[in-house]
Design a protein around this nucleic acid. Sequence first.
RNA 1: GGAUGAUUAGCUCAGUUGGCUAGAGCAUCUCGUUUACACCGAGAGGGUCGCAGGUUCGAGUCCUGCAUCAUCCACCA
Length: 887
Amino acid sequence: MSELSKAYDPQKTEDEIYSTWKDSGFFNPDNLKGEPYSIMMPPPNVTGVLHLGHALENSIMDTMARYQRLQGKKVLLVPGTDHAAVATQAKVEKLLVEKGHKNPREEFGREGLLEKIREYAEESKSTILSQVQKMGTSCDWDRLAYTFDEERSEMVNNVFEKMYKDGLIYRGHKVVNWSVKGQSTCSDDELEHKERTGKLYTFKYSKDFPITIATTRPETKLGDTAVAVNPKDARYKKFIGETFTVDIGAKKPLEIKIIANDEVDPEFGTGAVGVTPAHSPVDFEMFEIQKAKNDPIELIQVIGEDGKMTAEAGKNYEGLTVLEAREKFVEFLKENTLLEKEEEITQSVETSDRFGDVVEALPKTQWFIDVNKKIPGHNKSLKELMIEAVTTGLGGDKNQKITINPERFEKVYFSWINELRDWCISRQIWWGHRIPIWYCECGEIIVSRDEPKKCEKCDSKKIKQDPDTLDTWFSSGLWTFSTLTEEERKVFHPTNWMQMGRDIIFFWMARMILMTTYYMEEIPFKDVYIHGMLRDEHGNKFSKSAGNTLDPIDVTEEYGTDALRLSLVTGIAPGNDIKIYKEKIESSRNFVNKLWNISRYILGKSKDSNKEINKKNLTLADTWIIQKMNVLIEEVTSDLDKFRFSQASEKLGDFTKNDFADWYLEVSKFENNEEEKTAILQTILRDLLKLWHPFIPFVTETIWKELDEKELLLIQKWPKKDSYAPSKDAASFEPIIEIIQTVRNLKTENKIEPAKKVKLFVNTKSCSIKNFEEIIKTQENIIKGLRTGVEEISYGSSQENSISKTTSHGITVSIPLEGLIDTQKERAEKEKEVENLKKYIKSVEGKLSNKQFVSKAPKEVVEREKESLQKAKARLKEIEKYLKSLK
RNA sequence: GGAUGAUUAGCUCAGUUGGCUAGAGCAUCUCGUUUACACCGAGAGGGUCGCAGGUUCGAGUCCUGCAUCAUCCACCA
């Protein structure tokens, strides 16, 4: 079809193709038949626009979805977005501050600010969803979900209520992570450890205090109420149980009790730890232990929510920032000669990954999910369910077992669960699901989604809702089932497959497992595929500040979506970081164009469509390509079944470019079984388009349309290898390829112009295939045709004064010399080859003389070694002969 | 401190259960303007597979140790 342009132009076709797919209804599984197969899209945050990471996710999951659809399954891919509580509010507040609003929370109030955030979220939602379309993702738009929409919010309340009634959600007064800047709690996973240099101060509370302690946070010492020592430590044993009163300037003198704790390492530092229960999670644990032992210690909060010292810290410190107080307290220690040492150390501090400030540990009343408590009626804790889901399967049911790919991430997951503490789910920000808990003035606590009319206990109408909202991962954890109706869950849940970045294994994967195993008593997904993070060419993270960002939309506009998608799934190993850069995308774009031109050629040759291959009149090359195609289908299918996307696309690329385009297509120009050729070319092209479709959907669908097909490629049937069953005694075409390559090779090596006409001598005496000379004779026009410059072929032993090479099939190819050779260079090269050959022969002979090798190695291996030894020897003889002739 | 990954050609990376003289893309060099394709074709050069041991008939692949880099986790005051 000559009207097709020489180069594929993605811009012209992509949008139109996407609408065709969408309008066809086949993105919706209700219009498909077959076994159900479901994937949930990890919902992008509504914090802005899509970045390359999303492009990667869309490529991977859509490749899978399209593959399964072609496999004849009823595929559901649910699209959605995430309200991303803290992230979105932080982003909008930042934008407002940049616009000159100093304190947006005060200025706009709860409802006002929520309205601002809602506007922003809606806008970025629609941007993101249009970008998802641009990536070609074949998701069911009729089932579009949003973590903050009505259905999802209702599910959040249902789950909260059930957990609350089961006693798994509780309100507790504990030391939590507090971001002063964000004025909210953070969960342990939302912290980032940053290395910093700090000072370690070694001091005593007072001159007569018997134990020296060390700290990097002197100001918190104003709230110390104990010193912990190891009970086995002889130095301090005698003091355990004693209480000392010291006055270091806090509101009142501190009562410091000496307590025993096995965790304290006598070898480290002074062997004693100053305990500040209010401002350290570890010290708080000691506080709880002491309480349980009936030997309580005090808890004094000296730092407030505003990050400033409280009244408890004493007159001198009240109102000072943490840093000011630190300086002042160190000054005090120095003045009273209590400071023994001051040294520089590197320490890791916890910062909030959303607000960026250093997080303070503060005692606060918050809502928690208890991960260790037995679930009523189950005799198992959430933690145990989370482990079971990945090991034996829920309740030992293998159909309820999650497989993590690659396997090594299981270890990461288990070690995280091991250290998992109760999950703090309440946040003091406004953007998010409000906690469905109401407090009556009488003290009654009511769990209810809507405002209760009156208190059931006291009939009072003075009821207030908890002001806090839920951690965003609470709703994300429900994603695999909150996106489905009850009916749909019977068909599509557990979902079949899930993919996500390694960075959210804890945040998301773990929470989904927790929530789903608890609420649904099912696993959320059967297989999860963990991919690495994107990097630039030099392995750097993409970031705005580094200025190395690549906008996926720009890329698709310049190179096409297919090129981007192909680049993102090729040449990568599961779980490892993925480097992406212009050259890689360019080469994908070039490949897409290649496929376009292959199709253009085939379409130009014949418009006849869908002819069956008549196996009676096939040439050597025909059977060869049919065999190759057979193997290709088998391998690509198996790779995709095992999520080896990279291997699959590489094999496809290899076949398409090398075997099909470079050899078969070229050869086909010199053979005249017109009818069979057309059938083969068309059949292979059609199936190749199907195999390629999951990776590069747009170009394949565009070509498919040109084939005058009525149905979309989207819903075709995956090729079967049976249709390419090779005839049993098909002789291989490989040796012919080798002969042609050898001729070209000889010419280049000997500086003979490729177009130069030459005579060719072929000797098949040591060829492993019987009577191969007869076969070569039938292929002469191909050998002559494929730009070898060969004008005449003779058989038998080569002449004196010719250059020759033996192919791996033992065919010796010679070209008589024409006096065109640069002999000196030639000799040097040949001598090098002789050297290498001798080395090789020696090593193989060594191998073969090894009795253990000969007896233990598989027969084929030994045979192969013998064969290649023969060949090497033959080659050596030839070169030596030739070197002589040069002299 | 613990864990995981990486270390293979100038660059970016593949390499399945150990087995044919270790592969691809980009870059380099040579040749080529042949009606599918210059977003092209035909070739070439380039690697003691991080280092040191071990297991094995045989190791890029398995084991041990070391080095360098990266990432994650951790309460060492």
